[in-house]
């Protein structure tokens, strides 16, 4: 099991808010609602026997002496795409389980609030909703095969992503952040980028003469690592994530750096400081 009962209890208390991008207006937050008919009026339609008589507009009947029933907009479940990054960089750094667990936590929270989840798995998107959705999504996340996918490989399926995207990743792109950025940017999506990092990422315990092999592009780099090199590495890493953060601010996206060694409660506090998760 990716999530324990306690974890689910904690996640049940988490509120979820869907962010929407409205043309020429700042990004708005909409609270999630329970499933039910929408109250938004759409159109009139001539009453046919068998319809719910509660929908008959009696005022109009008084005016026109004809029975009309009101049509309401159908309430659609908000849909969020969750992308658990199980690329080689994640597998090599031993974050596979953490990514799966955190993705499951996000999916649970979304499904618990009646939303639909689209999960990116094996280069395609599966849709999950309803109470039964959790069992299926949990099962599928558990079965996800790490190391065979690349974040860039979601480009053919990128167009089928929903407007709101949650990415659980280490956000490492050896060949550049550009392609991934473009995929997410399609159709003005709103993204929540969750960077799962460990203390080893911040300060790797390496020294001496090493031949470093890049997990993503198989390139090698002969390198002598000492304390000065580690200091430079830390600076370059900080600069890299700072660039991503800046891009997120520019695009109205969210960037959250989550320490995977923390408890789930603390991790949730990082991504939802006021108890509300904005996706």
């Amino acid at each position: 099991m990716l999530l324990t009962t306690d974890d689910m209890m904690i996640l049940s208390g988490l509120k979820v808010s869907i962010r929407k991008r409205i043309q020429n207006k700042p990004v708005m937050d909409f609270a999630s609602r329970d499933i039910g008919d929408s109250q938004e009026f759409n159109d009139y339609q001539q009453f046919t026997p068998g319809e719910n008589i509660r929908h008959i507009d009696w005022n109009r009947y008084m005016r026109d002496s004809t029975l009309f029933s009101r049509r309401y907009e159908k309430l659609e479940r908000p849909e969020v795409t969750v992308i658990p990054d199980l690329s080689r960089s994640v597998v090599v750094s031993g974050k596979t389980k953490a990514v799966k667990r955190f993705s499951a936590a996000i999916c649970f929270s979304l499904l618990n609030k009646g939303m639909t989840v689209r999960l990116f798995s094996n280069r395609s998107f599966e849709r999950y909703s309803g109470k039964s959705g959790w069992q299926r999504v949990h099962h599928d996340i558990e079965l996800l095969d790490g190391g065979n996918t690349k974040m860039l490989s979601l480009s053919p399926a990128a167009s089928s992503m929903s407007k709101n995207v949650v990415v659980v990743s280490d956000l490492i792109f050896s060949d550049g952040f550009g392609q991934f950025k473009e995929n997410i940017n399609i159709a003005n999506r709103l993204a929540l980028l969750i960077n799962l990092s460990s203390s080893y990422d911040h300060e790797p315990d390496l020294n001496g003469n090493l031949k470093l092999l890049d997990s993503q592009n198989d390139k090698t780099l002969p390198c002598y690592i000492d304390s000065r090199m580690i200091a430079r590495y830390k600076k370059c890493r900080a600069d890299y994530y700072h660039q991503i953060e800046k891009h997120c601010l520019k695009m109205d996206w969210q960037y959250k750096d989550v320490n995977l060694e923390d408890s789930l409660q603390n991790q949730l506090l990082t991504i939802a400081p006021a108890g509300t998760l904005y996706v």
Binding site: R88, S89, V90, V92, S93, D170, I172, F173, S174, D201, P204, L206, G208, N209, L210, K211, L212, L213, D214, S215, Q216, K219, T220, L221, P222, C223, I225, R228, M229, R232, Y233, K235, C236, R237, D239, Y240
Partner: peptide
């Protein structure tokens, strides 16, 4: 001794490469 380097797979060499360049 320099020729005998240990190989190590890392998530990315991007930061190391940049660190070497800045060095």
């Amino acid at each position: 001794l320099k020729m005998q380097q240990k190989s190590l797979i890392v998530p990315t060499t991007l930061f190391w490469r940049k660190a070497m360049e800045s060095s």
